[in-house]
Design a protein around this nucleic acid. Structure first.
Lengths: 342, 342
DNA sequence: CTGAAAGCGCTTACAG
DNA sequence: CTGAAAGCGCTTACAG
């Protein structure tokens, strides 16, 4: 960082680099942007000059001319309780930040907990302040995906946006197969009264994991008993309430497949209060392999969602969309992680 | 949003507004920047033109000339386990985002979980891509605050940065007084063998809350028994381990003041495993009033940190710093929240 | 392969 | 109070 006479920082510009390297500004810019049409000699001279001067590109000047901001929004549309409670969001946020950082792209965090915030964030995005958005929201009835798409903003959603006319790219874990793996595992462990706590019916995880549960029961030759199905809203407390219902309607259950680790933790609490041992009396299987699975006691046997890969794919797809590629969907496989609860 | 002949978006510029309003670009700009030296008539004409055209300022062009980016970084330097586990971060992140959004300032999220990431983020920040940084890190030995300050970047830390030569602005809750309130409350409830689980000794909360514990015991005429003091690292698991130590060293404890809600939740688990009832046998007091306090069973009696005000103050102070004001510290009062655990 | 030049959209002295 | 003009730091056709 150069300093002028009075110690004030005078940022070094492309002009300084050009002078230092003995070339024109245009050549410096070409080196900066991939080095096409630049002789090796000039290339070297410029790179050395950049090193010596400590030059860093002024992104505003660049953006002004390219029309891109080289930044991306992470838009979370979720009631704040869930953001506070569910570690999945942190995992996703963390790995997206990391993945973007490795490409030197800053992530603008936007949280829309209510209609007002949704509107404000939408306006900001539509003003072109970001090149695209990573959309995270469990409730896929959310119209925001469609609105962004309609405005021509590249979007990649985490989880399939239900009800959007398939114009939106998304990345999701294979929910149905994950459910299948867990239910089959429970069955093969000898459980025969397998209940489930599903997620909200307006979320892909709520729908698909329940479907996987039903299918697998049928495959195993077990009847599907509606008394064994209770719905939660992905919160820990809702898991506890669902377990209580289940216990009341079917005291003989010997296993529960829960559609999220956080809810499974609530189920564990309810089971303990009811005096049932886990996994002795009742086996409990979760979903996510989130940090909550390890914090639970006993630690949860669960289905791992490959959040790292999910984030990587989301970022990759968003970049592709920004680059003009058509939308696409990526489904990633899940994996059973065996611990103590089942 | 105007569209050109082929439906491509052609962003409306200050030029379009000027033409529409029948004034010069300079006048439009003046209206945009506070309306000084502008006649009411021109003011009105410009505002109408802005409305009609749907004009939104191009921040890059503005930044290029003002030299400010009108954005702020939220830098979290924390091992990722803690970010995943501790809801305090989410609360802070959420309310800072919100506070900044209300001023139309985007928040760039940066997470530094290791040395590499620290370095990269530092470089990014020093390149002037943000106007200032909100620094959140429980471990205040962290040199990043000093490095940023040395580079002339305005910084406001959450919690007192220990070991920094007081040049850094910070906002903190009154940790010592919070501890005092809790210990006194425990004493006045009739408890006499009051233990504590403290935070890490290299964090302000670790130091101050422990100090408050000691002082208050002394004020109450109770001896300070070192066997009643165990340290955690703010994780839930460490709370459990500390409680086990405490129980072993001093089976007769009848209360524990825990320096964070998350650790208190771990203490609750350990107590349950040891067959102690809460608050019957042992009263448990937490600290933070984080979402973890409500998720715990029984729900935690705790000390509320005013996170909303903390965030507001952090943002306000950062803006002041950016505007050239000298550093300052703000200490906010805490409050006892009585629930079931004590 | 390279330089000179235009121009991205804005702000801000500078004259009036 | 207002307009004309310079200039922020960069990229990108355009000639050569």
């Amino acid at each position: 960082m150069n300093r002028g006479p009075e110690g004030r920082r005078r940022p070094v510009t492309i002009h300084d680099v050009a002078r230092e390297a003995g070339v024109s500004r245009g050549t410096v810019s070409r080196v900066l942007n991939g080095g096409h049409y630049v002789s090796p000699a000039a290339q070297t001279a410029v790179n050395n000059a950049i090193r010596r001067t400590g030059y860093v590109v002024n992104r505003h000047a660049r953006s002004l001319i390219t029309g891109r901001s080289d930044s991306v929004a992470f838009l979370l549309t979720e009631p704040q309780e869930r953001f506070f409670e569910d570690p999945n969001f942190n995992v996703l946020l963390r790995s997206c930040t990391q993945e973007l950082a490795s490409q030197d792209i800053p992530l603008l965090l936007m949280i829309a907990g209510n209609e007002d915030e949704r509107r404000r964030n939408l306006r900001y995005i539509q003003a072109g302040h970001v090149d695209g958005v990573l959309l995270v929201s469990s409730h896929s009835g959310d119209p925001v995906a469609g609105e962004l798409d309609a405005a021509g903003i590249p979007v990649v959603a985490c989880g399939k946006p239900i009800g959007q006319q398939a114009r939106i790219s998304y990345v999701a874990a294979d929910d149905r197969d994950g459910a299948r793996q867990m239910v089959r595992f429970l069955y093969e462990s000898g459980r025969r009264r397998i209940a489930t706590v599903s997620g909200p019916p307006d979320t892909p995880g709520g729908v698909e994991r329940l479907a996987g549960y039903r299918e697998t029961l049928a495959e195993c030759g077990l009847p599907v008993d509606e008394a064994l199905i209770a719905a939660g809203d992905y919160s820990r407390a809702s898991g506890g309430r669902a377990a209580e219902q289940l216990l009341e309607r079917a005291p003989d259950i010997d296993a529960v497949f829960v559609a999220s680790d956080l809810m499974a933790d609530g189920v564990l609490d309810a089971l303990a209060r009811a005096g049932r041992s886990v996994p002795g009396d009742v086996a409990v299987g979760g979903f996510d392999d989130s940090p909550a699975a390890l914090a639970a006691a006993p630690r949860l046997t669960t289905i791992r969602q490959p959040f790292d890969r999910i984030s990587k794919e989301m970022v990759r797809m968003l970049m592709a969309r920004i680059g003009g590629e058509d939308p696409a969907a990526v489904i990633l496989p899940t994996e059973l992680v065996r611990r103590e609860s089942a």
